[in-house]
Amino acid sequence: MDFFQTLILTTDSAVRLSVPLLFACLAGLYSERSGVVDIGLEGKMLGGAFAAGCVAAVTGSAWLGLLAAILVSIGLALVHGFASITQRGNQIVSGVAINFVASGLTALLGQAWFSRGGKTPQLPNTARFNEITLPFTDSVRGIPVLGPIYSDIISGHSLLVYASFVAIPLTWWVLYRTRFGLRLRAVGENPGAVDTAGISVAWMRYRAVVITGILCGFAGAYLSIAQSAGFSKDMTAGKGFIALAALVFAKWKPVNALGACFLFGFLDAVGIRLQGTQLPVIGEVPVQAMQALPYVLTVVLLAGFIGKSIPPKASGVPYTKER
């Protein structure tokens, strides 16, 4: 029972840890499926987190915080879009730039506006997305196995957590069942085919990039006004890159993304739990090994040692009309 309890707690913490990854991973999926490589997920998340922290602190409204996060993140996404789509610039470089700008500006403005070493003020619960207790939580807790799973893992999360899990099937549906999705997938594989079909490649990509912005906004807001009670400097701490790794790991597919993000979130949760504990046989597992594992797994996958992950054919390539 002790082991089961541990598993329940670890899984619960994995759910919480995987939510920002999920949002960011899906965000990257839209962009990269449209042919725009985005290593600036980190920056957009950070910008979103900062905006949410500021606005929620000033207005006292979590919803306005979320809105601000989305707007700021869309703004950064549009900068990336302008550089990548209109200017046909190097998408990697643009992503690096976004990360720098976001990291610098959030810390600078945070300090200038609030003078708390880059932090935004501590938020009261009224200005956050609080944990929601689903109906019957207490009554079913007694049921073996399923009870704790429902009460401790499924119930008791903020609205944004549930939103992230809705976002997966929604993205799948958009991608494979709608006109927009068809065109999105096409423009990332062969923009020429989309262009000759009379659809604007740039407009498609801009729309994708905006969706990326929205989802990164959610990811950022989750960090600062749901998971924590305020923004702190560089609080994304590489999550944008783990999300990117998860995207590669998920082979750019929405349902796989759920698996990849949850796996990486779970590894993170296990790493935290194992810290300083002795395991039989292996002994103590270094935290760092757990931290590196998502990246190592992704590299191994990329190298084709376990399956093969092939990016959308046109991703990273600016579209120029040519014969």
């Binding site: 709608t178 006109r179 068809l182 997938r185 594989e189 062969n190 085919a193 000759t196 009379g198 659809i199």
Partner: peptide
Amino acid sequence: MVHQHFMLVDNFSVLENVVLGVEGGSLL
């Protein structure tokens, strides 16, 4: 027009390629 270099999406089905751009509504 049938272009010299085909304007087809390789990992799409024939059907998906045919409807691309003339999907006839926002659902496929």
